[in-house]
Design a binder for these strands. Sequence first.
DNA 1: CAGTGGTCTAGACCACTTA
DNA 2: AAGTGGTCTAGACCACTGA
Lengths: 244, 244
Amino acid sequence: MDPMPQVPDYRPLYQQVRDLLRRRIVDGTWRPDEVLPSEGRLAAELGVSQGTVRKALDEMAAQKLVVRRQGRGTFVAAHSPDTTLFHFFHMVDRAGERQVPESELLDCRRGIAGPAETEALQLMPGAMVLRIDRRRMIGGAPAIVERIAVPQALFPDLDVLEEDGLPNTLYDLYQKRYGVTVGRATERLRAVAATAEDADHLGVEPGAPLLEIERIARDLDDGPVEWRLSRCLTDRLAYLSELT
Amino acid sequence: MDPMPQVPDYRPLYQQVRDLLRRRIVDGTWRPDEVLPSEGRLAAELGVSQGTVRKALDEMAAQKLVVRRQGRGTFVAAHSPDTTLFHFFHMVDRAGERQVPESELLDCRRGIAGPAETEALQLMPGAMVLRIDRRRMIGGAPAIVERIAVPQALFPDLDVLEEDGLPNTLYDLYQKRYGVTVGRATERLRAVAATAEDADHLGVEPGAPLLEIERIARDLDDGPVEWRLSRCLTDRLAYLSELT
DNA sequence: CAGTGGTCTAGACCACTTA
DNA sequence: AAGTGGTCTAGACCACTGA
């Protein structure tokens, strides 16, 4: 598959193929929603059997890096409001139904990264970040307040865009406008007491228990691209976690 | 693979094989930690190719129903304290390290299922449950109080066993002593205010914010086998959720 | 209709484990 | 050395899609 590798690679062929195809997606050779060459073509190009390409693509599909559609082809996975909500928004109502929140912008401005942001986003000291404060409503009632911080270097004009109104789901915007694909995220959940400001936005008493969700979202190369701190009312909603 | 199926099955062969093997594990034909027949033997027995059996077993391995060990064979997955903690205990410290909690039994008694238990465990009205109240310590300090409720029908003498001290991880006990394998669980997280009793056990003020985790654990047939309500101090710990 | 991914097969060889 | 799962190949046929 590679006539003159600089460093001989003794890993199984299908893993080499998988990582090569993955690299091409990350590099932008094929962009989100684009179709990859067929299994047969890739096999011929790389000099391996179709079964080996298939095994590589199957693993990438399991990892949601590509989507396979019988009769049509294999496509680079793209975020959409639906997939974003499904994967990254875990609040459900009493009946266990996933609720779609509305967003209300509170504030959006640039600033120098604080210690927590520098640490979470692995920035150089003094780097600039954009901060977005939002309130999110479920069924018209305030449910969540959140602070989102992203490196300004990755999203140079996100704050200008704000004038036109930010979309409810940001990850498809990150992907389509800035070429930043969120591949995975880590969330840490804690219970905290509402600050005076939280209480004001959510319509509760200061000191009321809130579910705090701290999220670090990473791109396909595992670099941090977003730090997010959400505080949620959990009288009508709960965070759903499936252990399988 | 089946010469006279009562109802013709048009699903792919490997899915039929997968479900048949799965059925045998659930039925106890092969018990936890036992080795299955080799791929070749299964293929011959079922009249399919080895590749088809392989695809079925690979899916079961991805689902953690079996464990494959090169050179040795394919084994029915079994719980151990380690796998249980890794899969079902998500509290981590500030550094992101998973912490192993100690357990201190507070109470253990039988009772008639209340409405919440009847609902969660899908019991008949008036059915008996066993309730276990525990306090869990991290590094010697109280961190969690929890109530566990299980149908008495499934674990007839669990409360008698308590005299010898319950193990720290219950799921391997459920499996080895009662033949009940927990295959998956659903958790709902909320923020609540500590009751006077919570506060007493955890050494905080009443009203302090606690992370409440409500878990329903299910067996391999998806029937509920345990209902658990944990309340956690999150000053030193956080609930870790990986979104991939 | 041609082209795609999905299934199934048969066989070769490799890597690892146990005896 | 024998037996296991892991990799890789080649080829057949099926199911689905879109021109």
